[in-house]
Design a protein around this nucleic acid. Structure first.
Lengths: 336, 336
DNA sequence: GAAGCTAATCTAAACGTTTCGAATCTGTCA
DNA sequence: TGACAGATTCGAAACGTTTAGATTAGCTTC
């Protein structure tokens, strides 16, 4: 910018004025400066600018797992919206680990991101403390933490799972296995509540042995499903609380020499683009990823535009049960 | 830092020295300074630091599509390695669009990333020009551009596809449809060359009508596959040049009332974690995503550590044919 | 005891912007 | 003609670091 000013024969203040359009500049000087900029190939240094203005035009985005299609779908729309609004996005993954989460957030804060969009990984207290100190606009997605007063966009997990279990019950299933996500998360809790609520409504007594923790991961879910499948009176249906885990469930079913839906019905949270083309066509709960991403982006942009502290807003969206062919009406087992 | 210096009764230079460990400091002062830091809760401002040092400890990572599991797998390992090395990663998507690519790279350059890892989306010349001007370490992944002299890690696409087509030919298939990615990319080109090479080796005359462009996208691939399936003499097998497109191919097959592998065999580039559990179990070419990510990270770290310009290194890895059950030996159609 | 070293500490100038208040210029009005 | 207002332009001080070079103090060494 010094160079530009020198070759245009003006002061840096004037150059800054035309680069940012922050002050009126005579058309003559404007012309000279624009020529100088073109000649030199000058580009404004965003770092120096950030240091002075205190804003980086960058949003930190923290998710649990970049390998999970649900998160990547949401990330794609958030990036799209925020880029359009002139923000860059810095993406970090916590691997479902609260410690890594703290590290990653700290890394983002160091780099002075203007705002944070987070899908929290457990451990509310640490997160609360960190965000408190950060003092920048934050919106939570997918999962929320009681302690934290922040904007959020979440799903009505309980309602969604309840619908799915209702459907299974409607098909005559009574012993329905449930592979749960981590109960440190609001999604893990909410979805389990949906399962319990549906059973209760149907007057089916609750059997703790049918609920296994899969921690939202394929491997843990495989083990959990195995435990279900070796039970003397094994469930006639299994519901998996997310997309990664249902793969594990299907592998367990295969390894036990069973077939879905012939021997056992399966349904899961989160939809797949290929769900209606590979067999069994999974019956799933589709999340409105587009809406989640758009709302999250809008919430943070609103906060960024207007730093007054209006009370946190919480947006609750609904899942949609996609009925396909991975669930069959219950038939008593051969020997029964 | 001024505050810390004041409360510790030392100069900022000394504070800087202990914070960075760049100069010897007596244990007495060190103690006072550390106390002051703890008391104030001081954190070094990375922006100011970057302005002075000219390094941001951030790497820009540019991929075509965050929704593509291949890219996300690679991103996951790159992020892991680079974080461990003290770098943050800024992820951008080009949506396979050279114009967006230029925009995103410019955005990263503005923010003074120390290095760039790019999976280029066509248009070599623009990219070459941009990188030339950027003058920072760059490594290309997945795809390369002839014009650009940069480190790169790629697959031997030709060999991999040739293996897959050889396999199909070995099963007796003669009319093999090919859904190609964009021919503006080295991957699109290399994979097609593999297809052609295999046919040539087998002495099968080449039929242009069997090759359709799917642009690496599900929707385009669906249309491309449809064109193949309505041919009077339709192919007995189809190979898809990536993971997204094979979904489109399968949808086309379904919509035409055909079944895989009974009526038509299917194989594709890129593996799926669920490939051996949902039917048909796709025969695919698995890419060594872990190795790709590790090599890419290492190349950029090497460049960063040693700015001398040794000639660009190019690492070529091999794909692995995962034979499952989506391909059947060729049987002459009923009417034939 | 002066000179010379070493080690620790400090001073002050960058880095490339933004921005506030001062300075300059042009024209208008009394 | 002189004062004043409005429109431009400029000078210089920040922003929070790093770092080269100056300074100081404490030891050796002769």
């Amino acid at each position: 910018m010094l160079d530009v000013a020198a070759t245009a024969g003006v002061s840096v203040a004037t150059v800054s004025a035309v680069v940012n359009g922050t002050a009126p500049v005579s058309s003559e000087l404007r012309g000279r400066i624009e020529n100088a900029i073109a000649a030199i190939g000058y580009k404004r240094n965003a770092i120096a600018r950030s240091l002075k203005t205190g804003a980086t035009k960058t949003i930190g985005l923290v998710i649990a797992d970049i390998t999970n299609p649900f998160f990547t779908d949401v990330v794609a729309v958030i990036q799209d919206v925020l880029h359009r609004a002139g923000y860059a996005v810095m993406l970090c993954c916590t691997d479902e680990d609260p410690e890594q989460q703290e590290e990653q957030i700290s890394l983002l804060l160091d780099r002075m991101v203007d705002g944070l969009i987070i899908a929290p990984a457990g451990d509310d207290h640490a997160l609360e403390r960190v965000l408190q100190r950060a003092g920048i606009p934050t919106v939570l997605i997918d999962r929320i933490s009681d302690g934290i007063a922040a904007d959020a966009v979440v799903l009505d997990n309980q309602r969604a799972v309840q619908d799915a279990i209702d459907y299974l019950v409607g098909l005559g299933h009574r012993r329905i296995g449930y592979i749960s996500g981590s109960l440190d998360t609001s999604t893990g809790l909410g979805r389990l509540a949906g399962y319990r609520g549906a059973l209760e409504n149907a007057g089916i007594p609750h059997d703790d042995a049918l609920v296994r923790i899969g921690n939202f991961r394929e491997k843990d879910a495989y083990n959990a499903a195995m435990q279900l499948l070796v039970m003397p009176e094994r469930p006639s249906a299994i519901f998996s609380a997310n997309n990664l885990m249902v793969i594990g469930v299907m592998k367990a079913i295969r390894d036990m020499g069973l077939r879905c839906p012939d021997d056992i019905s399966v349904s899961s949270f989160d939809d797949f683009p290929w769900a209606d083309v590979f067999q069994p066509n999974l019956t799933t709960i589709a999340q409105p990823v587009q809406a989640i991403g758009e709302h999250a982006s809008q919430l943070i942009l609103d906060r960024l535009a207007d730093r007054s502290d209006r009370p946190p807003r919480q947006i609750v969206l609904s899942g949609r049960l996609m009925i396909r062919s991975s669930c069959r009406p219950f038939a008593a087992p051969d020997g029964g």
